[in-house]
């Protein structure tokens, strides 16, 4: 898992970049939100990667499981919570976007700014 772990970690970095780029560079609000949830997903990957132990198995006892190496359950618990936080943010963000569309007739950030300046 040596270099694979690092690969996972770098994938986390790449995903973080892609999502973050979308958040900053995109003008469309839904696209921003998609980028934001990708940004959060990257962090989930980070946590789950660090919880993995080589040759381990899922931390659930089971009759058929003879292995006694279990991966670390704590990061998994944290990420369960974080996923829920993520979907809550997305839901609220979408609610705001729908209201913006109703009030402004657009969900492009630069257009909205333009409308208000007039």
């Amino acid at each position: 898992m040596d270099w694979l772990g690092v690969y996972y970690y770098w994938a986390f970095a790449a995903l973080l970049m892609i999502g973050f780029y979308a958040v900053i560079a995109k003008s469309n609000l839904i696209k921003k939100l998609i980028g934001l949830s990708m940004f959060q997903s990257a962090v989930f990957l980070l946590y789950i990667t660090m919880g993995k132990i080589d040759d381990g198995t899922a931390p659930i006892y089971h009759e058929g499981v003879s292995q006694q190496i279990f991966s670390n359950p704590l990061p998994q618990v944290l990420i369960l919570t974080a996923i829920v936080v993520g979907i809550s943010t997305v839901a609220l963000g979408l609610g705001i976007i729908v209201r913006i569309q109703e009030e402004y007739g657009s969900i492009e950030e630069h257009e909205i700014l333009g409308i208000d300046e007039r």
Partner: peptide, 13 residues
């Protein structure tokens, strides 16, 4: 997913 579950010996998944 199914294949991996068998591969890792955790058919309970």
């Amino acid at each position: 997913l199914i294949v991996i579950a068998f591969l890792y010996g955790r058919p309970d998944f």
